[in-house]
Simulated scan of single mutants.
Amino acid sequence: MVNAQDEAQERVHRWLTEVLRTCGRKKSEVAEILSMQPPGISRLAAGTQNLRADQMIILSETFDVPTPTRTPSPSGTKGFSRELFDRAYKQVRDMEADLPPDQKMSQEEALDAVFHIMNRLGGAQD
C-alpha cells in the first residue's frame, strides 16, 4: 500500500520532471538557480533525492509555474485549500515588498510565515 508521503513525493517528482522538460534550461543552469551542483539535479530528476519546499518555490517563481496541487481529500477529511495558501503567500510577499534586501525573509522563513497566516486566516478547510 502506498502511503500519503510516497504519493506526495511522486506528485512532486512528476512536477519537477515537467518543469525540467519545459523550462528551456540545461540541468546545469537549473542547478545554479538552486545553488547546487549538477549531480544534485540529476538525483532530483531520477527521484533518488527529494526536492525541498524552498527549492520548489524557487523553481515555481523562476519559471512562473504553479506548484503541484494536492489531490482532493476524501469526504470528511480536512486540508488546506490552494486558495488559502495563495492568499497567505501573497500577504507574505506584500509585507516584504518595500523592505530592503537585507531585511527580507529566507525561503524557509517565508514558508513558516505563510503557514502561520494560513492557520490564522482559517486553518484547515472542510
Rank of each mutant, 00 (worst) to 15 (best):
A8N: 02
V92S: 03
D54C: 10
V19D: 07
K27D: 04
H13G: 09
M56K: 08
E61R: 15
T17F: 09
Q55C: 08
K27I: 00
E83G: 12
P38W: 02
L34G: 01
V19C: 12
T62C: 11
G47A: 03
M56L: 14
E83S: 14
G79Y: 05
D64V: 14
V92H: 06
G79D: 11
E61T: 10
L51V: 11
M36C: 15
R14Q: 14
P72Y: 03
I58L: 14
T69F: 04
T62H: 14
P39W: 09
I57V: 15
M95G: 08
T77D: 02
R70D: 13
A53L: 15
V65Q: 15
K27L: 00
K78F: 11
S28H: 00
K26S: 11
L84T: 03
R93K: 15
I33Q: 01
L84E: 01
F85I: 03
F80E: 04
R11F: 04
E61P: 04
G24S: 08
K78P: 00
D94F: 06
L44E: 03
S81P: 03
K27N: 11
A45I: 00
G76R: 03
E18M: 13
M56Y: 10
Q91T: 05
P68C: 10
S42W: 01
K78N: 05
L16W: 08
E61S: 11
A88E: 05
N50Q: 12
S42V: 07
P72D: 07
P74R: 12
T17M: 12
T77R: 09
D94M: 09
W15T: 06
K26N: 03
E96M: 13
Y89M: 06
V92C: 05
Y89E: 02
L44I: 03
R70S: 13
T62S: 13
T22W: 04
Q91V: 05
A53T: 12
A88W: 01
E7P: 00
T71S: 11
E18F: 10
R52A: 06
T71L: 12
S73E: 07
R70N: 13
G76K: 03
E10W: 09
R14H: 14
G40M: 10
S81F: 04
R43M: 11
V65C: 13
V12T: 11
G79P: 01
R14P: 01
L16K: 12
P39R: 10
R93S: 06
A46Q: 10
P68T: 07
Q49F: 02
G76A: 03
K27C: 00
I41K: 01
A8D: 00
W15F: 09
W15R: 09
R21T: 14
S35N: 11
G76C: 06
T17N: 11
V12C: 04
P39Q: 08
A97M: 11
D54H: 14
P38E: 02
W15E: 08
T22H: 12
L16Q: 03
S60M: 10
R70F: 05
E96F: 06
A8L: 05
F85N: 02
W15H: 12
W15A: 09
E96I: 02
F63C: 09
R52C: 02
Q9K: 10
P39H: 05
V12M: 08
R11E: 08
D54Y: 11
Q37K: 13
A88G: 01
Q49S: 14
C23Q: 08
R43I: 00
L20M: 14
Q55M: 14
T71H: 05
Q9M: 02
T48V: 12
R93E: 06
Y89T: 00
P72I: 04
T71A: 14
A8P: 00
L20Q: 05
